[in-house]
């Protein structure tokens, strides 16, 4: 197992940052670590990297107790959220220099740069890089030594849709072909649904959910719909197949158990007969988001448009 963390707790300067965090991931997995701002995701990553020492709990990386952090870090590649570099260096110079900590580059620098989509930028000073290019270079930095575990904090921030897709493809390739375990810390549920095989949700310093994504979505239960009401509906005596989840102004969110015989249409008819009047129906395509919102007390995950 790459990471086997159980019931980690951490207090810094008298503030309890983590209460009970558990995280389990294996080789070749892409693990999505989710949680609202300030939930403790970055602190959890810092703990995994040995930048903090847990007050309580049990932590094993690569099936080893934390005895030699330097040798553990040799097997981990990290892409922090804020990608900073020595901007007077060129991308190629920087990668060669940074790889020195790991005994040198595993692959030639230009090949590595090409892999993250920076084939033409090797000699360019980093100060001339756009934010997206720096994100790509940060990923190249995390890969300089061929890590077994890759920890990525918001890796697609600042990337255009095409760049985002390219990074996704690279991560999938790393996980599937090279069996690299990838811990992805992100706000973007789209990314998680597209990439991750397993997720963990942290809220207020504790793990509130950890499971394989397939099973989670399979068990996610009944589909949800958002209805735009033209009038205020009665919410008493709803049909048993309808469960009112939430309302926000004229938008009502309902969970519906489709009838096995007549499908969803019968449910809409039941609601119309109760006097519900709506002119728009949206299927909540993101059941993960719904689950996330329920578990984290309603903070909506950031949409791609906002984050990019």
């Amino acid at each position: 197992m790459l990471i086997d963390a159980n019931h980690l707790a951490l207090t810094l300067d008298g503030n309890t940052i983590l209460k009970d965090v558990s995280l389990h991931m294996d080789k070749g997995q892409i693990y999505g670590l989710l949680g609202p701002n300030g939930a403790g995701k970055s602190t959890t990553i810092a703990l995994l990297l040995g930048l903090y020492r847990a007050d309580k709990g049990h932590l094993m990386r690569f099936s080893e107790a934390e005895t030699d952090l330097v040798s553990i870090r040799r097997r981990i590649g990290v892409m922090p959220e804020f990608a900073g570099f020595y901007e007077w260096m060129s991308a190629r110079e920087y990668l060669i220099w940074y790889a020195g900590f790991y005994g040198g580059l595993q692959t030639p620098p230009d090949a590595l740069l090409a892999r993250v989509g920076l084939a033409q930028a090797g000699a360019k000073p980093i100060s001339q890089f756009s934010r997206g290019m720096k994100q790509r270079l940060a990923l190249a930095r995390a890969l300089v030594h061929g890590p077994e575990l890759l920890i990525l904090d918001e890796p697609t921030n600042g990337l255009d849709p095409r760049g985002r897709r390219e990074i996704h493809d690279l991560l999938i390739e790393l996980a599937q072909q090279e069996k690299v375990g990838i811990l992805l810390c992100t706000h973007l549920l789209d990314d998680v649904e597209r990439l991750c095989t397993r997720i963990g949700i942290i809220d207020k310093g504790q793990t509130v959910l950890e499971d394989d994504l397939d099973r989670l979505l399979h068990d996610a239960g009944r589909p949800r719909y958002r209805l735009h009401m033209t009038d205020v509906p009665t919410v008493q005596s709803l049909p048993p197949s309808v469960n009112l989840i939430d309302w926000d102004g004229s938008w009502y969110t309902v969970e519906i158990e489709p009838s096995q015989d007549a499908g969803i249409a019968q449910t809409w008819e039941s609601l119309l007969s109760l006097g519900w009047s709506f002119d728009e129906i949206h299927r909540e395509k993101d059941t993960l988001e719904a689950r996330y919102l329920t578990l984290t007390g309603g903070e909506r995950a950031t949409s791609q448009e906002k984050a990019a």
């Binding site: 090797g122 000699a123 000073p125």
Partner: peptide, 11 residues
């Protein structure tokens, strides 16, 4: 010189 080289370095 550094500034000049920095501006004119390219791939």
């Amino acid at each position: 010189t550094q500034r000049f080289r920095h501006r004119h370095r390219s791939a």
